Simulated assay, not measured.
Amino acid sequence: MFYGIIIRMFFKDIEKHKLPHIHAEYQGDVGVYSISDGILLAGHVPPKKQKLIVAWIEIHHDDLLADWELAVNGKTPFKIKGLDQ
């Protein structure tokens, strides 16, 4: 979590999007973002928060991909620091 944005990665979550992604929630709005390029796949998050999410994905790209591999295989991913830490 950073700047009020909650980032989630769900175990074995490959049915709908089939590619590495995260779910970002801010004040009830939820966006699903591709880890590879930060593109919004579904949903909506306010533009200012979206910029923060995309920057965070870019900074933590390798860590997110490693966590994705753990999560889709039913293992617990590691926590990744937010932008405000």
Rank of each mutant, 00 (worst) to 15 (best):
Ala55Arg: 14
Ser36Met: 10
Leu64Ala: 09
Gln85Arg: 06
Met9Gly: 08
Asp62Trp: 00
Ile22Leu: 05
Ser36Thr: 05
Gly43Val: 01
Val45Ala: 10
Glu15Leu: 10
Pro47Glu: 06
Leu19Ile: 15
Pro46Phe: 04
Asn73Tyr: 03
Leu19Tyr: 08
Pro47Cys: 02
Tyr33Lys: 04
Asp67Gln: 07
Ala66Asn: 09
Ser34Met: 07
Pro47Ala: 04
Ala24Met: 08
Gly43Tyr: 03
Ala55Lys: 15
Ser36Phe: 09
Arg8Met: 10
Val72Glu: 05
Asp37Asn: 15
Arg8Trp: 05
Gly28Cys: 05
Asp29Asn: 15
Pro46Trp: 03
Asp13Thr: 00
Leu64Asn: 04
Ile5Gln: 09
Leu83Gly: 11
Asp67Trp: 02
Ile59Asp: 10
Pro47Gln: 07
Tyr33His: 03
Ile35Phe: 10
His60Asp: 06
Lys18Phe: 06
Gly28Glu: 01
His44Val: 07
Ala24Ile: 00
Phe2Asp: 13
His60Ala: 11
Ala24Gln: 09
Phe11Ala: 13
Thr76Pro: 09
Gly38Glu: 00
Met9Glu: 07
Asp84Thr: 04
Asp63Met: 12
Leu52Ile: 06
Glu25Ser: 11
Lys16Arg: 15
Gly28Trp: 04
Lys16Asn: 06
Val30Pro: 07
Leu83Tyr: 02
Ile6Gly: 01
Ile35Asn: 12
Leu40Thr: 11
Gly43Asn: 07
Pro77Gln: 13
Asp29Ser: 14
Phe11Glu: 13
Lys49Trp: 04
Lys49Cys: 04
Ser34Ile: 07
Phe78His: 13
Ala71Glu: 02
Glu25Cys: 02
His60Arg: 14
Ala55Asn: 12
Ile22Phe: 05
Lys12Arg: 15
Gln27Val: 12
Ala55Asp: 13
Leu64Val: 01
Ile7Tyr: 06
Phe10Arg: 13
Asp84Pro: 00
Tyr26Phe: 15
Thr76Asn: 14
Asp37Phe: 01
Trp68Tyr: 09
Ile53Met: 06
Asp84Cys: 01
Lys12Val: 04
His44Asn: 15
Val30Gln: 09
Pro46His: 03
His60Gly: 06
His44Thr: 10
Ile7Ser: 05
Tyr3Leu: 13
Met9Tyr: 04
Pro20Asp: 08
Thr76Met: 13
Ala42Ser: 15
Ile53Ser: 04
His61Gln: 13
Pro20Ser: 14
Leu19Gln: 14
Glu58Ala: 14
Ser34Pro: 09
Lys48Phe: 11
Phe11Arg: 12
Gly4Asn: 11
Ile5Trp: 07
Asn73Trp: 03
Tyr3Ser: 12
Gln50Lys: 15
Val32Lys: 08
Phe2His: 15
Pro46Lys: 03
Glu58Gln: 14
Asp13Cys: 01
Lys79Ser: 11
Lys49Thr: 01
Gly82Glu: 05
Ala66Asp: 10
Glu25Met: 07
His17Asn: 12
Ile53Lys: 09
Ser36His: 09
Lys81Met: 10
His44Pro: 12
Glu58Asn: 14
Phe11Lys: 14
Trp56Glu: 00
Tyr33Pro: 02
Lys75Glu: 12
Asp84Arg: 00
Gly4Ala: 12
Pro77Ala: 13
